[in-house]
Design a protein around this nucleic acid. Structure first.
Lengths: 325, 325
DNA sequence: ATGAAAGCGCTAACAC
DNA sequence: GTGTTAGCGCTTTCAT
């Protein structure tokens, strides 16, 4: 493959001129432009990003650290990030941390060696020091890492409030709240939103703490449904809502006639269930896109206008609730 | 950040020795090892992969090109690839092609500039030349690109045959086959498998060609269900099977009592539907892992023992069929 | 067993 | 406006 020197030679100019041409920097005559562009064409020249990176100490790689890309929550985020990155000439490196601190640290180290320009991180370790000390920018999505790190996520508290409110308006009096793991930022926020909605109202509430796993959700809910009269469920995720639906089905409870369910996330799954799951949709794409834009701004040395942004959630009413609007 | 020269100086040796130490190449005294390792420790030195790449013209990046990571089919593949890559010291770059040739070519070019070591490609453009001419290794997954390019996928034909067979054994006599887009390798193979199973048998079959989209599947199936008596559906994907389930539901047809359904893929979705979807599961993780191993072998200059591998599919019997075993 | 030095392909002063 | 040249951090002959 041709290199910059070949191009220079072929065009009868110096490498510096070619470099200027490539980077649109400094003055350069029309004639030179013409002849260089021709040489590039003829030689089928592609500049080496590696060499450029070595020289500039910059790169166009963005490290994306997620717990597990298989979790339906992340692909859309990744997709958005990738789209924006592409538009700005960046390239995204996918890292699955499995919530494992060890792996995460390892990734950060490896990618630093490879000169990543920055990180987008969806994780939540208390060990924030591992990120705060980095010399490349970071932005956190979904979960807050540290006050010094820009953060972008759904307004989970408000989203959960809206979802719960919908259950209330649909006539539920005995509500089961399937809250997510306590200690996990978004899960806590959603639980707070649930409480915002029900507090002071004349309704029975039951709380269970349930990991974001289908089977676990199914068994836990089945048990509750057998023990207590429940006419509405607020699940903290679509996956757990799906588990609840299955539990109801196996108990012969009709959804939404006897039991109404609201999920959270707005993943594809929600729309593909039967009946269609009413859910509080996060604008995952927007979160990802914003995170990518923020990171790129940071990478390119700009200031951020806001270091913390909350994207509103949107209630998607489908068939697991009886909207009485 | 310290560089190799700092380490050399600190250790009182030359950079060449440090380099040898780093790469376990050439002779190096125990004493030197000791002193270098100490210096590395103290300086918190991390070798620059960029510089190394520039020098060796090799890299540890693997480009993964998929149509859309949001399609539930791909995350698991990506996950497996990433796991293996990590184990071998490689790093994966995520690229969404949207089946868009333009974008794909663009990616390949960009990544070449960045010195990717190889590509794993899940796509199917007839324009195979864009790949055959590359100077880095490639392996194709899911869809065949060109006879010269190693290929790894599920044995779709046999998988579809098994799935259809299950419908037959479960007593279906009027089967609807929702085949995928014709011309698409895996879709064609699955259709062939369906035919393998039904040909010569005394049953009615109806064929529709249906893209891998939920809504489209739902409407198409609904129409068919209203027009013709159907007691079994073989869908070419879980997503379309989910659409079929919804269609049945809206028509008040009970699954599996009046209508049995078999999906294909074995994605999470299948297990999270109610009732649980019987499906022909692809071992996506295995495909991804194998692809990654093959690519790395190729990158590292080894020969491949087989250039084409078909992974068997496995029937996952759940609740949308009445197994009469 | 180790060191000196010439690249790898590009950028960025600095000089002309 | 353009060219010269010294790096960027590492690998790798070739001496010693």
């Amino acid at each position: 493959m041709a290199n910059i020197r070949d191009v220079a030679q072929h065009a009868g100019v110096s490498v510096a001129t070619v470099s200027r041409y490539l980077n649109n920097k400094g003055y350069i005559s029309e004639e030179a432009k013409r002849v260089i562009s021709k040489a590039i064409e003829e030689l089928n020249y592609e500049p080496s990003m590696i060499a450029r990176s070595l020289s500039t100490k910059q790169s166009t790689f963005i490290g994306l650290i997620v717990p597990d890309i298989v979790n339906p929550f992340f692909p859309e985020l990744a997709r958005a990030i990738e789209d924006i990155a592409l538009a700005y000439g960046y390239t995204v490196i996918l890292c699955n941390s499995d919530e494992d601190l060890e792996k995460e640290i390892n990734y950060v180290r490896t990618l630093q060696q490879k000169y990543v320009a920055g990180f987008i991180v969806a994780t939540s370790h208390v060990e924030a020091e591992h990120y705060t000390g980095l010399d490349v920018p970071i932005v956190a999505i979904d979960r807050r890492i540290h006050s010094s790190i820009p953060y972008i996520a759904t307004d989970n508290r408000e989203g959960a409030r809206i979802g719960t409110e919908h259950l209330l308006q649909s006539g539920c009096k005995n509500i089961l709240c399937m809250r997510g793991p306590s200690g996990l930022g978004p899960a806590d926020d959603r639980f707070a939103g649930f409480n915002d909605a029900v507090s002071g109202k004349d309704i029975e509430t039951h709380i269970i703490e349930c990991p974001f796993q289908f089977e676990v959700a199914e068994t836990m809910v089945k048990k509750v449904l057998q023990d207590v009269p429940i006419d509405g469920i607020f699940a903290s995720s679509d996956v757990t809502a799906a588990g609840a639906m299955k539990a109801a089905y196996s108990l012969g409870m009709h959804v939404p006639d006897q039991l109404q369910i609201v999920g959270y996330d707005g993943t594809m799954l929600a729309g593909q269930l039967t009946p269609g799951l009413t859910t509080v949709a996060q604008d995952l794409y927007k979160i990802g896109a914003m995170a990518a834009r923020m990171l790129i701004k940071l990478i390119e040395g700009h200031e951020l206008t806001e270091r913390e942004v909350l994207i509103p959630a949107e209630l998607l009413i489908r068939e697991t609730t009886r909207s009485e609007t």
